[in-house]
């Protein structure tokens, strides 16, 4: 992938440090650990290091409680690390920012705002004039299939529709990386598949860098370019896998032989 070539190895010892323009973009997670102190301190994450290239779709796959949400919260700037750091687009992550927009598991839409107002909340909060973002908002509403629902309130939407608003709301910020925290986990199997299809279509259009977390193996294979398998207590990366399925993808792939082969590989890796 052309995008991966943008990622260059860090300067070797004895070499002069890299100039600002030479430093790699994308997401670089270096030695991140997270400990929750207390009577019995909990090591949520241990020495996590990985990188995401521009335009890459990366998934962290792991069982519930393995720390993947904690990792995403650290990337989003909601939580601080106990050790290590995260650099996104050459900027050290210390706080939340629209350049690392989040799609939450529980849509987290503002219940008093309509679909349109929810989607345009970000640009409005930054004081941007309506003309700037109206076109993109319309384009995103079209892309997630919510045309005609602009004036609806969240209480009138199904779970899947709310998540579509959540995705549009994040993408309108043109983030460097889209962080997705098990966004389809609360949906039924049918809706989940439909949403995965929508996400694939949207990704094809916008080619955003995505950092996705889930416990669903099929979902990880279908959506990603790269999968990092994580195990629990303490949370650490145990395996990295490239998904070589050709793009653009569709949801029909889930019955392919190649898909099954990847599934078996992951199954084995996750058992340990």
């Amino acid at each position: 992938m052309a995008a991966l070539s943008e990622l260059r190895p860090p300067a070797a010892e004895g070499q002069p440090p890299l100039a600002e323009s030479e430093k790699p973009r994308g997401v670089i997670i270096t030695g991140v650990s997270k400990e929750y102190p207390g009577a019995q301190s909990v090591q949520a994450l241990q020495d996590i290091s990985l990188s995401v290239a521009i335009g890459e779709f990366v998934t962290v796959l792991g069982p519930s409680g393995c720390g993947k949400s904690t990792l995403l919260n650290i990337l989003a700037g909601f939580e601080a690390t106990s050790g290590g750091h995260v650099v996104i687009n050459r900027e050290l992550v210390v706080r939340p920012s629209p350049s690392r927009a989040v799609v939450f598991q529980e849509a987290a839409l503002f219940p008093w705002l309509t679909v349109w107002e929810n989607i345009t909340f970000g640009p409005k909060a930054q004081g941007k004039p309506a003309a700037d973002h109206e076109a993109l908002a319309k384009q995103l509403i079209e892309a997630v299939g919510l045309r005609g629902f602009e004036k609806h309130l969240p209480q009138q939407l199904s779970g899947g529709m709310k998540q579509r608003v959540g995705i549009a709301r994040a993408l309108i910020m043109r983030p460097n990386v889209l962080l997705m925290d098990e966004p389809f986990g609360a949906l039924d199997a049918q809706t989940r598949l439909q949403m995965q299809g929508i996400l694939l279509d949207v990704w094809e259009k916008f080619k955003t860098t995505v950092f996705f977390i889930t416990h669903d193996i099929d979902e990880a294979i279908l959506l990603s370019d790269t999968i990092y398998i994580m195990s629990a207590r303490p949370g650490r990366i145990v395996k990295r896998m490239d998904v070589t399925l050709a793009r653009p993808r569709s949801t029909e792939l889930i019955t392919d032989d190649e898909f099954n082969r990847l599934r078996r590989e992951i199954f084995v890796a996750m058992k340990h």
């Binding site: 989003a76 700037g77 909601f78 706080r95 939340p96 920012s97 629209p98 690392r100 927009a101 989040v102 939450f104 529980e106 987290a108 839409l109 503002f110 909340f121 970000g122 909060a125 930054q126 709301r169 994040a170 910020m173």
Partner: peptide
């Protein structure tokens, strides 16, 4: 959660 959503949107 709404506070976090607003934070990540730049509020």
């Amino acid at each position: 959660l709404l506070v976090r959503a607003a934070e990540m949107l730049g509020a």
